[in-house]
Design a protein around this nucleic acid. Structure first.
Length: 800
RNA sequence: GCCGUUGUGGCGGAACUGGCAGACGCAAGGGACUUAAAAUCCCUCGGUAGCAAUACCGUACGGGUUCGAUUCCCGUCAACGGCACCA
């Protein structure tokens, strides 16, 4: 009997939908399992073969957990605000919500054709006012707690289009739309104080099960360092404050560097004799992004301030001050003390400007390069610090600075506050009213959601304000505080807002009293397993942890960390090994694969393609192997006879059950599939299969290929639906074979093999190995120095 | 530049905690079935030499530790992800 995947897959998808098979009950007595994948941005291009990699993997986990008796929540939704939809709307004069609706419908149809066990009754959409009501509510709580504030920030500005550009739209310093040069313009922006949570975000990592590289990257992104803040007096009278992780090297500070944007420059205007030169340099620096500025390879540039000097507090020496773009305004105090002998960037700068390089830590050769190692060095040329180790010197100088009142111990973070404003239309309106008397006033909660009004044009305004600024009817309102005429905030939120808390909404998606009910939160939180891309590690994942920790502090959620476990999948590349993209012409459409091979084959192939965590190139030819495997499993029904698992296959079955059970937990789907393929080969070699063998095999395969296995279950006449049966158990004792083949090595090289009983004693095995004809011959005339037996693996005889 | 990661046959990949490198699959070659093709089934398949048994080489490159290294350490090269307004 031929297997018709088209008909069968549709049949089961319909049954699952009609019966609500994967709808999650509210039976809170069962153990729960909450599996989460990153919800997609519904782009106009439709689903990409990259999306199902993550979705299939956790679908397999979810289906297996259900078979193991868990109450599983596996939801899906749409992260639908964002730039591409807005740009499409501008170009084609279609409302973004219309575009979104169409894209969502397309995505949903594509996802459903792959047979994912999502609970569609809990579908959410970040652009739905009933959803973003709560996104706005969270913003209000942040505002009330003082974590949302306004600040002047530099943004990318296209002077020709007169609009703010996203970094992506300003790649290479050129406007993506018109090609003109992008400048940095200062604008007042809403900011979120994520830095207040730096310590909590760091410490929380100790309590969660995230893959190590995600933790490392988050730790580095937060970038905690211990050092000192030091005050340098200047000849202008003001104090120039710096942060340093190397206060021990203070005696070696021979000059200072400020970021070109540093506020003191403006204050010192009167004293500075080379203001023209300074202005020119500031303008040049404004055009560069932070990471262009910090590149080490390029020649260091800068301008010496003519008219103001600093005074080194340890020795009273006057030292020059420079501005240079390698110092960033956004890190530390925006100024540094430069110690060229012990910092590579300072060294390079000092060489260019001919500044003195004073060695204060012995151990390197400062004629050649900066000596940066602080583990081994001994202090020198440093007065009362001489002879101390770097660590001792750090402690002593920090104490001294504190005693003198010119510095203090300081913990610093690389993490910067979150720029939360966008001058765009397609985002959540920020629920704030600006009153001339009361200032920024939060909208009362009973006025939420503040609905995004319809506008005629989605183009930003001449001044770079959001398109909402043109909606005077909407903008003009009254102050919720004093009733006087006031104006609404016209900036919108970034796309990160809606995705920072979406997992909370799935657990109680229709609640209009709260984000989710306490009861639902207590049962479902935290997310048990969250899978997503590595590219979201430092932004989305950190932002959502921040919001969650905040919500925990204001008692709006019931646990301190949102995600108990985080894993990451690799990208699926084009057949040529490059990233899939329209412009490269190497995009594979999942619809084509489903049509030609079926959803089960597609799912199996995406899991078999390689190591889940690594990038893997698509290969059309290889898909056939997965189709062939499913066809061979189907064909087993032709040779099926009554009976239990046969003794000669017993250990194969137990080993395979163990392998699949463990590999699914470890996201090693490729080796789980390989194990099932090997089992099929072993069964096929016997020429028949028993009912019980087939039953066990198709339960194991069900999470991977749910349609064909469900159909086989029905054809074979087993009771009920396969997805409601139990996952098979294995017996550790039955996974072992009686004999095992081991290798015999001489000096680490395999020279022979032999079969031994699994429980054979070491000395007997070694004796047997030496008795082996070819081994005996090669050992003749040599002295045995060492004999090693690794149980069940090998014997190694070292001889001379 | 900074942070993180990766590098194994013609290809995707496998290999426990330092223990037989190449599981499983694709492609390729040979054979069976067929009027023929597709499908299916069987065999071979890292390189060099050899009829063969077998020997030597081989996990990006150069060193090191070890009885034994794809695995650990040091260095080099190449590729990929992120760098805060793409998501």
């Amino acid at each position: 009997m031929e297997y018709n995947f088209k008909q069968t897959e549709k049949k089961w998808q319909k049954i699952w939908e009609e019966k609500g098979t994967f709808q999650v009950g509210t039976d809170y007595s069962k153990p729960k399992f909450y599996a989460l994948v990153e919800f997609p941005y519904p782009s106009g291009q439709g689903l990409h073969v990259g999306h199902p990699r993550s979705y299939t993997a956790l679908d397999i986990v979810s289906r297996k957990k259900r078979l193991q008796g868990f109450n599983v929540l596996y939801p899906m939704g749409w992260d639908a605000f964002g730039l591409p939809t807005e740009n499409f709307a501008i170009k084609n004069h279609i409302h973004p919500s219309v575009v979104t609706e169409k894209n969502v419908a397309h995505f949903k149809e594509q996802l459903q054709s792959l047979g994912f066990s999502f609970d569609w009754s809990r579908e959410i959409n970040t652009t739905d006012p009933n959803y973003y009501k709560w996104t706005q509510w969270i913003f209000l709580q942040l505002f009330k707690e003082g974590l949302a504030y306004k600040k002047e920030m530099a943004v990318n500005w296209c002077p020709s289009c007169k609009c703010v550009l996203a970094n992506e739209e300003a790649a290479g310093g050129v406007c993506e739309r018109c090609g003109s040069e992008v400048v940095r313009k200062v604008k007042s922006q809403w900011m979120l104080k994520i830095t207040d949570y730096a310590e909590k975000l760091l410490n929380g990592l100790d309590d969660v099960n995230f893959i190590e590289r995600v933790k490392t990257q988050q730790r580095n992104w937060i970038g905690r360092s211990h050092g000192a803040q030091v005050k340098f007096k200047t000849t202008a009278g003001d104090v120039l404050e710096v942060y340093t992780t190397r206060p021990d090297t203070l005696f070696g500070a021979t000059y200072m560097v400020m970021a070109p944007e540093h506020a003191l420059i403006e204050k010192w205007q009167g004293s500075l004799r080379n203001m023209d030169q300074i202005r020119a340099y500031q303008e040049a620096a404004a055009r560069k992004s932070d990471f262009e500025r910090t590149e080490v390879v390029k020649e260091k540039t800068g301008v010496k301030l003519d008219g103001v000097c600093a005074i080194n507090p340890v020795n009273g020496k006057e030292i020059p001050i420079f501005i240079s773009d390698y110092v960033l305004a956004s890190y530390g105090t925006g100024a540094i003390m430069a110690v060229p002998a012990h910092d590579e960037r300072d060294y390079a700068f000092a060489k260019v400007f001919g500044l003195p390089i004073v060695e204060v830590v012995k151990g390197g050769d400062i004629e050649k390069e900066a000596f940066v190692d602080c583990a081994t060095g001994i202090m020198t040329n440093s007065g009362f610090l001489d002879g101390l180790s770097v660590e001792e010197a750090k402690v002593k100088i920090t104490q001294w600075l504190a005693e003198q009142g010119v510095g203090e111990k300081k913990v610093n973070y690389k993490l910067r506050d979150w720029v939360f404003s966008r001058q765009r239309y397609w985002g959540e309106p920020i629920p704030i009213v600006h009153c001339p008397k009361c200032g920024a006033v939060p909208l009362p909660e009973d006025q939420l959601p503040l609905v995004l009004p319809d506008v005629d044009s989605y183009e930003p305004t001449e001044t770079g304000e959001s398109p909402l600024a043109k909606m005077t009817d909407w903008v003009n309102t009254t102050c919720p505080c004093c009733g006087a005429p006031a104006q609404r905030e016209t900036d919108t939120m970034p796309q990160w807002a809606g995705s920072s808390w979406y997992f909370l909404r799935y657990i109680d998606p229709h609640n209009d009293q709260a984000l989710a009910s306490k009861e639902a939160m207590e049962y479902w939180l935290p997310v048990d397993w969250y899978n997503g891309g590595m590219e979201h590690t430092t932004l989305h994942l950190l932002y959502s942890r921040f919001w969650h920790k905040f919500l925990y502090d204001v008692k709006a959620v019931t646990c301190p960390e949102p995600y108990a476990k985080r894993t990451s999948h690799g990208m699926i590349l084009g057949e040529n090994g490059e990233k899939m993209s329209k412009s490269r012409g190497n995009v594979v459409n999942p619809d084509d694969i489903v049509n030609e091979y079926g959803a089960d084959t597609m799912r199996l192939y995406e899991m078999f393609i390689g190591d889940f965590e690594k990038a893997a190139p698509w290969n059309s030819a290889s898909i056939k192997g997965c189709k062939r495997f499913l066809d061979r499993v189907w064909a087993l029904m032709d040779i099926c006879v009554a009976g239990d698992i046969r003794p000669e296959l017993e250990s194969n079955f137990h080993k395979t059950i163990r392998k699949v059970t463990e590999d699914v937990e470890g996201l090693k789907m490729n080796t789980a599939i390989a194990a099932m393929m090997a089992l099929l080969n072993d069964i096929a070699a016997t020429g028949s299969v028993t009912r019980e063998e087939l039953r066990t095999l198709i339960i194991l395969l069900n999470p991977f290929a749910p349609h064909v296995t469900e159909e086989m279950w029905e054809v074979l006449g087993f009771e009920g639906m396969l997805n409601q049966t139990n996952w098979p158990l294995y017996d550790e004792a039955k996974c072992v074979d009686a004999t095992v083949e081991i290798a015999i090595q001489i000096c680490g090289k395999v020279r022979a093999k032999m079969n031994i009983a699994v429980d054979a004693k070491g000395e007997d095995v070694i004796a047997a190995a030496k008795a082996e004809a070819s081994i005996a011959a090669q050992l003749a005339g040599k002295t045995v120095i060492k004999e090693i037996y690794v149980p069940g693996k090998l014997v190694n005889i070292v001889a001379k």
